[in-house]
């Protein structure tokens, strides 16, 4: 009996502690975000002098300026198209590869896996853009949006592995039965695997969208010779700096705050996908 109470007390303490930890996590995460949002309403001097976290007199004009200087609508539309397309291609290519790698044996699989794994360690950052740009200009594609989308999609190594890991955990019987029934691999993929991998594909979609939306260097370089394609992040970051005179940090914060909205919308959409697994389980239970 005594042991039972002790355990109960222990569980309660654990519960309280974990809620405390969760709340402090929220504060830790939210504080800089709030600081950014409030900072976007300050004057530049106010921001850097750091007198108070609240703006003295909200400078909504920062947003108008960010809107105008960053050409929000035109570049925002570019960003939306590029990010959505990249997201779609990324989900498609990584899920195809991830599924095949998880379920089938084929010549060269070992080689492929070890190459992918090895490439995870290697990074040369934006330097890779030299050869890529050279290649693109040789085939006359350095000015197209398609190139930007494909380059931003990239090799998808992490995503392929994520999908592969997820598919490996699914019970084999689910798709094996269908294969034996004579369904083509495509149909198994489309009708069985895709719905089952929704949670992880949601992650892939969200992260790809977010990364593309926030990408600076690649987008800058690939839109260089065709400024009509400039993306919003490039435009916003360009608000930041002038080398021989003061940076306009307040405008940049305003631009960044505006740029949060689209990614958050995608988050809300994809969040349903992570949640869905849970719901289905609940219904079954």
């Amino acid at each position: 009996m005594e042991r039972f109470y002790m355990e109960k007390a222990f569980v309660t303490i654990l519960k309280v502690l974990s809620w405390l930890l969760l709340i402090s996590l929220f504060v830790f995460t939210l504080y800089p975000v709030i600081y950014t949002l409030l900072g976007s309403l300050k004057t530049n001097a106010e921001l850097t002098l750091g007198k108070s976290i609240l703006p003295e007199d909200p400078q909504w004009v920062n947003y108008i300026k960010a809107f105008k200087d960053a050409n929000f609508f035109q570049y925002g539309l570019n960003s939306l198209i590029v990010s959505s397309a990249t997201m779609a291609i990324a989900v498609l290519t990584s899920s195809l590869s991830g599924y095949v790698l998880a379920r089938y044996k084929f010549a060269g699989k070992k080689l492929m896996l070890s190459t992918y794994q090895a490439m995870m360690f290697v990074t040369i950052g934006p330097v890779a853009l030299y050869p890529i740009m050279n290649m693109l200009s040789k085939i006359g594609m350095e000015k197209s949006m398609l190139s930007l989308i494909l380059v931003l999609t990239g090799g998808q190594i992490t995503n392929v592995f994520l999908v592969m890991g997820f598919v490996q955990r699914l019970p084999r019987e689910l798709d094996e039965a269908a294969t034996i029934d004579g369904c083509s691999i495509f149909r198994v993929y489309g009708q069985i695997i895709l719905p089952l991998t929704k949670p992880i594909l949601g992650v892939v979609a969200l992260f790809t969208f977010r990364n593309t939306w926030n990408d600076y260097i690649t987008s800058l370089i690939l839109t260089m010779s065709n400024r009509k394609l400039t993306t919003l992040t490039v435009a916003v970051v360009q608000l930041k700096y002038s080398v021989w005179a003061a940076a306009e940090w307040h405008i940049m914060l305003a631009g960044a705050s505006l740029a949060i909205i689209p990614v958050l919308s995608v988050y809300i959409f994809t969040n349903k996908q992570f949640m869905s697994g849970l719901m289905e389980g609940a219904v079954k239970g």
Binding site: S97, V100, M119, I132, M135, L150
Partner: peptide, 29 residues
């Protein structure tokens, strides 16, 4: 054979992107 073909077909979009955008630049450097 048909299955093998399908497998490689499904891998190809990702493989093409992987080799041109990840492997080739590294060899270049």
């Amino acid at each position: 054979i048909k299955q093998k073909g399908q497998i490689y077909l499904m891998l190809s979009p990702n493989l093409i992107l992987f080799f041109t955008l990840s492997v080739y630049p590294i060899i270049w450097v």
